[in-house]
Every structure is written in structure tokens, then in C-alpha cells.
Design a protein around this nucleic acid. Sequence first.
DNA 1: CTGAAAGCGCTTACAG
DNA 2: CTGAAAGCGCTTACAG
Lengths: 332, 332
Amino acid sequence: MTTIRQVSKLAGVSVATVSRALQKPDMVSESTRKKVITAAEEVGYQPNMMAVKFRNKKSFAILVLVPDVSNPFFSKIISGIQTQAKKKGYNVILGNTANDLATEQELANMVFTNQADGIIQLAARNPLIDNIRHATVPIVNICDCVTDGSMPVIRLDNNGAAKAIISHFADLGHNRIAAIMGPDGSPITEQRLSGYLDGLKEQKIDIIESLMERGDYSMESGAIAAGKLLAHEVRPTAIFCFNDEMAIGAIHEIRNQGLRVPDDISVAGFDNLNFSRFMDPPLTTIRQPNAHFGQHAVEMLFEMISQQGQSVESLTLPYELIVRKSTTKAKP
Amino acid sequence: MTTIRQVSKLAGVSVATVSRALQKPDMVSESTRKKVITAAEEVGYQPNMMAVKFRNKKSFAILVLVPDVSNPFFSKIISGIQTQAKKKGYNVILGNTANDLATEQELANMVFTNQADGIIQLAARNPLIDNIRHATVPIVNICDCVTDGSMPVIRLDNNGAAKAIISHFADLGHNRIAAIMGPDGSPITEQRLSGYLDGLKEQKIDIIESLMERGDYSMESGAIAAGKLLAHEVRPTAIFCFNDEMAIGAIHEIRNQGLRVPDDISVAGFDNLNFSRFMDPPLTTIRQPNAHFGQHAVEMLFEMISQQGQSVESLTLPYELIVRKSTTKAKP
DNA sequence: CTGAAAGCGCTTACAG
DNA sequence: CTGAAAGCGCTTACAG
């Protein structure tokens, strides 16, 4: 490890001057700057970032709290976060929480021990809310939105997107439109659910309680929920799944029971995973701008970090309905 | 920010004693320990980790270099790394490289600026090889193996797994077995390729050059490669894709051309993505113990970090052939 | 424009 | 068992 001291000796200047020449070049004369830079290169100087961070009381790191890194929806967002953070010279510390509150709080505590300058939270709660100092912590939320107003949020118009799906089904002549929802209490689920209900009302389609099943956003749960829907005396003619993974599970189960998609039952998802356009049939779904979520989150977080105290506006990003072959006209 | 000094005042002892009471409890007397702990709790003391890391010259962080975080195969491994690292009190810094060497080197440089204590590399090269000090850096490799012996590797028996696929096809009576390979120069591709060739020899099946196409492990490339294979006068009866994503793309294309899987063509993949058992047809593939890859990598890395200099053994983890419905008997 | 000095918050030999 | 002191490698007011 070469230090600033060695550079200073070789260049024949003080350590203060080395620091200035390297970090604030216009505070030193042209000639010393050159001397210093030459010396630094000669000894292969690289600042000890641990010392820099300690001294500056900045970690140059952001913590990302994510329920499950290996969830493809999240991992795309993380990819966007990473890209944007790197541009700003920040590191991304990965915090896999498995949706465990204690884990979230423990990880979030890193902002209080100077290990992170801010937090991007991908789950629907504020892990800091119990902490006295929480108001001072830069934190933003994406995806499953924190609805208590305790932090700025980057969200999709989930309600509008769900209505767009229902409207699409209605255009195709469907009037028994089932829903495979997410778990109770998830804001994202609530929003899509209200969009589903609003959509049905707008289209003057009866709301049938028994056509609404809960899943947990996994493929397995989609298959199970679809199984329940198919057991009804009168089956749905279309199913709106609150994410692509449940749609994949649902289609799997529908097929298992000898029915066809879309001929017997139309199925739509939500998220537009990479995979969704390659499956059979390709899935009608809602595209979310995942990478943009990540990028905007980083931008917002930096705004909060720099102009601390100032509140930052929440942001709603646009969705896009993508019609593929998993949905078709209702049989007359 | 409360510091050790405030605790020391409140407890009426020196800062040295506070440090000892908190970090090396058995170096102080029972009574002082209690005093200190009480005082620490009272002021809500949490050590400034920036200072601790700086002082100890340890970052308590490992850097994970990954070509693409949002690749489901990688993200599962990362999940395993994260879990294991957290157990040891280490943070995971995420380094998305997009397979760009300059980015890898820049990120890898973090070990020289004390921002990371070691590296887990998921791509097939040593980003430090040009650095004079590279021999001193704890680094391990997973997945697409670094074959130059410059670091320990955690690998799958790719050759054996590929042979198992061929053997499975042969058992089903196939004798025109195509391959959709990965890109030239990827060690993992080479290993699966040699397994494919070895397998064909063992089964006394002719090797047909024109039945071997390259992809880049993406679904798109799988579809394109399948298109080329289908254009042959005599089509293959089975296709071994070097990963699940290319298999997904291939099946998509086969269907597009009005053929059936597995009735007309059997398809096998490699990786066993979550999704593979829910697709239609469910995919015959090789299960890799992804999370274990991550866990073992962390273990190995810690071994290297602690007993520096000592070389650590590479490790080969077992594969498992998973037979599903995408493969069936060859038509007579 | 430049240098000497203080200090960020810890830990640890050293002495008692 | 405990304390005073040094020091990790930087940056920055302060003085010149």
C-alpha cells in the first residue's frame, strides 16, 4: 500500500499539497500539479478509500434492500440501480431481506454506522420508521410502494394498467374475468385489485367474488390458484394474473387439466419478464420500465443525499399494454 | 453520531476500556463491562464502522463480479453468496460488469483501495492478472471457469453433465442429436462441448458438424440457432441446448415453424431455471446447485482471506439430470 | 500557492 | 485489569 506520504516525499512537497493536487487540482500551481501526478504514477499511488471515506464521513455506497435478489423482476431493477450508481462513483451494497423485518432493520442500520449514504427499498415498508433518526435518512422506495408517505416513491400506475388489461379483455368479449391476486396487505396488490374492480365497473361486468383468488406472486401459487378457479361450475373465460410468474403457473395448470390457452381461457400477466415473449403462447402483459425504476431511484436518492432535509417528489412511470397470443376473443 | 468518547465519559472509564469491553469482553472485569454496556445503551452507541474498518484495515466486504445481475442463473448464485456472507458479517458489493474487461478491472481495483477484502468472479477471466500484486488478492471463481489456474474454481462437472444428456437422448433412440452451444472461447462452452462430443463417441453416434450451432446463452440466440438447424435437409431429432434460456428460445422457434416438442424434436437444456418446470412442455435439463455455488465460494474466499498465501483447493459440485416432458422417444 | 498541524473515531502495544 | 498515547491515511481550516 503506497500512501500519500510517499508521494509527497518523492515530489518534494507536503502531504497537504499532494492531496490538493489530486483532489482539487485548481488549488495548486500547474508545476506542482505535474510534479505530484508524476510522483503518484511512479509509486502507483491509489488513495486508501477507507481513509477517505472515514475522513469525509461519506461511504459512497447505497444500500439496496430487496426481498429476493433472484426474482427476475427485482434483478432487472437492481441492474438499473447498479448502472446509475456506478456513473456517480457509488457502490451498491446488496441487502437480501427475504422479507424479514428484522433483517431489513439490521441492514438499514448501516446508514447509522456510516456504511451507506442512503437506501433504496424495494419492499413495501419503512424499515427505519421506529428509529428516532429516521427522518434524516435518505431513502426512496420502488415497486411495492410504501404508502405511508414516509419516503418518496417511484411507482407504476398500477390501477391504470390493471384497467387496461380489463378493457382489453372486454374488447375481446370476455365477461367472466377472474383475477389471481397477490397477497393481502401488499400495496401493489391493492392497487392492481382496485384497477381490476374499477375496470369491471367501467365495462359493466359483474364482479364475482368467487373469481378472485390469492397467490403470492410465485409460479407455484399461480398454478394452485388456477386450479381453484377451474373447479368452479362455470369457469372463467379469462384470467388476469397480477404478475407474469403467476400467469406462467396458471397456464401450466390450465394445460395440465387438458384445456387450451387462449382458446378455452385467455390469460394475461403483469411485468413483461424476458421470458414472457418466448413462452407458449407468448404472454399478454404489462411492460414495466424496470431499469428506469432503478435509474430514477438512484437519481432521487442522490437528490436527497445532497439537499438533505428538502423533500423530493414521488414519481409515476408509464406502463404499456403488450398484447400477445395468450389472450383471444371469447367464445360466443 | 455518538462516539466511544461519550460512552467512556458516561461510564467513567477510558476509551480504551470501552473499546475492550465492547470488542474483547474478557479483557475487562465483569463490573466495568456492565458499566460500559449500560452506558453504551443509554447513549445509543453504535460504532462508526468507517473508523473501525479504517483502523483495522479490513473492509468486511466482498466484491462480486457478475456479467449480468438480471440473468436468473447468476442471480441465484448471488443470492447464495449474500446469505453466506451475511452470516459472517460481511457485506456484498455488487459489481455488474456487462462482460467489459475495463469495468471488471476498475471494480476489481477496489481490493487495492481497501474497499473489498476479496473477490468472487462469475466470469471466465482473471481481472487482476495484469496487476503486479494480483497474487496477494483473495479471489475465487464460479460458473464459467477461469482455466489458467490463477485462482481456485468452483465448477460443475460440465463434461459429465453433457454426457448424461447425450446418454439420455441415446436411450430414447435418438441419433441425430444437434447442439446449440455457447460462444467460442467460453470455458463452460468448451467443457459442455467436449462432453457432447465424448457422449456421441461413447454412444457410437456420428458427429455431424452441421448439427452444431453457436448461440450466446440468450433466448433470442437459441431461437435463431434453432432456425438454422431446422433449415437442414434432414432435421435433427433432438437438440441439446447448452443452457435453459437457449432451449426456451429453440422451443419457441420450433413451434413457430409448426413442429411439436417433443413429438417432432426433443429438446434438453442446462441449468434448471425456476421456470423450466412450468413451461410447456416442462424442460429436461441439468440441475446446478446454484445457491451452493455461492455458499462454497464465500467459504473458500474466507479461507483465502484468513490464511493468506496458502492455496485453496478447487471444488467440483455434482449435477443432476432432470428428465421432464421436452424429451421423448425418437420416432422409428 | 503552500505547509504545519489538528483531527476524524477507532484499536492496541506499552506501561503500570 | 486499566489508562495514556500513538497512529491508521487522509483532508482542511489556518497562517503565511
